[in-house]
Amino acid sequence: MTTETGLASQAETARHRAPTRAMSTGRAGDRIFAGAARGSGITVLAIIAAIGVFLVWKAIPALQANEAGFLTSQEWNPNANPPKFGIAQLAFGTVMSSLLAMLMATPVAVGIALFIAFYSPRRVASGLGYVVDLLAAVPSIVYGLWGLAVLAPHMEGISAGLNSALGWIPLFGGDSPGKNSIFTASVVLAIMILPIISSISREVFLQVPRAHVEASLALGATRWEMIRMSVLPYGRSGVIGASMLGLGRAMGETIAVAMVLTYVPGINLHLLEDGGATFAANIANSFAEATENGRGALIASGLVLFVITLLVNMAARAVVARRKEFT
């Protein structure tokens, strides 16, 4: 196809062109760019370190001034003189609401994941996944607004029903089930963590080797038997890890809980009754009125929340990572 002149002219211009070797090899550019990349990575480490350091540093004066047991007291009066505050009630509310949320969300989330992975038609599966992900796109302030205006009135009846049926269990006991209870908060939290649990579970289920699925189907298994034989055992630790990530998310959730939950001092074991508090909601609610010492106390409680969520998240990731080793 090509003529000899093409090659000749190529050789011609080659002579006019600056020799290739004279071009910079970009060593300086490489050093600068690699340095910037590395520096950014180190910045991330520095931020995490700074979070720990500054929270501790700013919490110490308030903790020193505290006249109550920080871990044991149910009281939260850091602005008083002398300041008295403890995290017992906050820890109780946080753990109870998020555990309940996790227990409610996990089975539903697994159902959703199975539905999208194995029951829905292939063509619409990703679209349905997107619909569930939309739940995650709704900001927590909107969940709070909705929880307060729409969900809470409905929860009054549900809570009363649970109370009369299961009142013999202390957590569901009490005389006056309400609508601004830890239970209501946990329902809102369950909805909020549904998408994260279901999307991770879905990913895990979709990773089940095709061969396992086909092996059980070839044995004459029904769809449910296939799921029980091949999918659930394979995905179990992934689902556990996912629900723990959801737990961590629920523990740190602030605004929705702050809006739904009515603050009543003191631990109340009756979760259906109005009142309770969580670390995060307490910070949002008390911040505006906090004095200097009050801010320090809130920072101290935030530090505890940080450590708890950190431990839960790390445990969750360890569970998920262990699964990876087995496959």
């Binding site: 196809m1 090509t2 093409g6 090659l7 190529q10 211009t13 062109r17 071009m23 910079s24 970009g26």
Partner: peptide, 25 residues
């Protein structure tokens, strides 16, 4: 990517190289 600029020069090189690789036509 090595920082050579100049539309005319690049045009020439592209044509020559494509001719050289029997792909120009």
């Amino acid at each position: 990517l090595n920082g050579v600029r100049g539309k005319g020069k690049l045009d020439d090189v592209v044509e020559e190289s494509l001719r050289g690789a029997n792909l120009w036509n």
